[in-house]
Amino acid sequence: MNENPQNSVSPKTIEQVYQPVTRRTFLKGTAAAMAGLAGLVAALKPLLALERGEMTLDDLLQKHYRELKPEELQRILRELEARCAREHGVQPVIRDLKPLPGVEFGYALNLTRCIGCRKCAHACLQENNQSRSSADDIEMSYIRVLELKKGAINLEESDLYYNPQTVPQKDKYYMPVQCHQCREAPCTKVCPVQATWQEADGIVVVDYNWCIGCRYCMAACPYDARRFNYRKPNLQSARINPNQSYLSNRIRPKGVVEKCTFCLHRTRDGKYPACLEVCPTGARVFGNLLDPDSEISYILKNKRVYILKEDVGTLPRFYYFFDQ
């Protein structure tokens, strides 16, 4: 075997490995370790800016919502209230509302009546405490209103950022899209940690304290119905809705996915969703699919109903219908 100066490990070096550590090697090693450690500390320095209380041991040890004992859940709710008061100066009431027995929610939207005013998208933002960079910023709203050309239902030709002087425009019609609360929900199926699931009343919810933020559910959703908190939610205290619930509109941490819950903090309390209440044309119909006398059941029985992306096989609980 000939000596090759390019060898990374020469026989001489190998020889050293078998010998006890010399003083020189020890000092060299220590110096290298110190340099490495200094580099590591310097690299991790930004972590000092983490806010206090952003990552607590309690958070790390918290169990999945469905495995929490009632008293554990109550303690967490009080803690979340205190956190909101501390960080935003608003004292909320955070409740845990369970699905009502004998209720399966359904939503129908009248495409003949909708005028594309986007009031629903704004009301959603007010109700659900989404992050926004300005009062008009509806990017995080759970409702996306599409402007479509009359004559077809072609989403590819739709415009989300339409901005004419007045709506509706003559040759256009409008289609608000939000979570369809699918019976065969692709989003809950793909979640690796079951942080999102379907409740007994059909509403698909997210445990924001359990979500790991992988965004697989967003990739799976055919309706673009999920939003991700790429940063800590930006909210003005004056605009915070203090009527909150654990599974819906409480203020989210950064790094988790959120979505429309049919305003379950209202609807499980006998009220209508915020988007329905604000609609100026009465295009929105909400109710119990299991009640044969409800308005929603009447519409599904008697109107020409359209299901968005029916070919994907998601079996939505959200329907579109037409008057004429």
């Binding site: 690796p192 359990w210 790991i212 992988c214 950064k254």
Partner: peptide, 12 residues
């Protein structure tokens, strides 16, 4: 690095 909450990895 793609996770929003890497510290919750044990949830898996």
């Amino acid at each position: 690095v793609d996770l929003g909450h890497p510290e919750r990895f044990h949830h898996m």
